[in-house]
Design a protein around this nucleic acid. Structure first.
Lengths: 118, 118
DNA sequence: AGATGTAGGTTACTAAAAGTAAACTAATTG
DNA sequence: CAATTAGTTTACTTTTAGTAACCTACATCT
């Protein structure tokens, strides 16, 4: 991660240790940083939540967005979808251990964000 | 942040403490989470960096993106643009105290991201 | 002198993602 | 029976992201 810009004798520049394509920060952001992704993970922190309840909690995110994000999170193994009832279809989403491992970062982000009351 | 879904006697649901529009996590993500934003902040952590050097370090981000992100970061007071030379125009970008305050989160994100080598 | 390279951008245009609104199946309540 | 809830899906519009070429000014190489 220590990128070093090297200048040769003729003023030409090259970088040693450049971020190999998307670097760790960028990769991490792509797991956690998508629009609404962090909020969804954070709202699942205490217990499994049902689809529409999540929508109500998130205020501002469309059903399509939530659906899309949940599917991405499921594909990455951060969230599990569980059908808890058939007759009237009822589904909950909950965090996996991996999903849970992101909570610390999100909690820090929340504290930082609130401290800078933007 | 403790959203509670309340169900009334007739099964109607409402949420207490819903995320008031974009909640803290979401707001924080909008400061730090945009594409390349986190990476840019992180690469400015040690010293001021020049525009094109940043481009070389980030590998994969276009000049337009970097320019756009730097302008946003400047507008939010997270980064300062400094003209260090006129004859051949030379510019550096460096973090403000506020910008610097985001580094801990980014560092944690990097560690998490690398640990889960995605 | 003329071609090439560097720095710091801007412009025009295309592709991909986000957002909105409505529709759909199936069951439940009044 | 009409209205409501749950969990999506579809069609369509608006924003963003990304690409590539271009521009001004200075410096160096041949």
């Amino acid at each position: 991660m220590e990128s070093i810009v090297k200048t040769d004798s003729r003023g030409r520049k090259t970088v040693l240790n450049a971020c190999t394509e998307p670097c760790a920060i960028e990769k991490g952001m792509r797991l956690i940083g998508g629009k609404w992704t962090g909020s969804i993970i954070y709202h699942l922190k205490d217990s499994p939540v049902r689809f529409n309840d999540l929508g109500r909690m998130l205020g501002g995110a469309s059903k399509k967005m939530i659906d899309q994000r949940l599917k991405e999170l499921e594909a990455r193994g951060m969230v599990v979808r569980k059908v808890i009832n058939d007759r009237p279809v009822a589904v909950t989403y909950e965090l996996t251990e991996f999903g849970r491992s992101a909570l610390k970062i999100l909690e820090d982000l929340r504290v930082w964000s609130e401290a800078n009351s933007i």
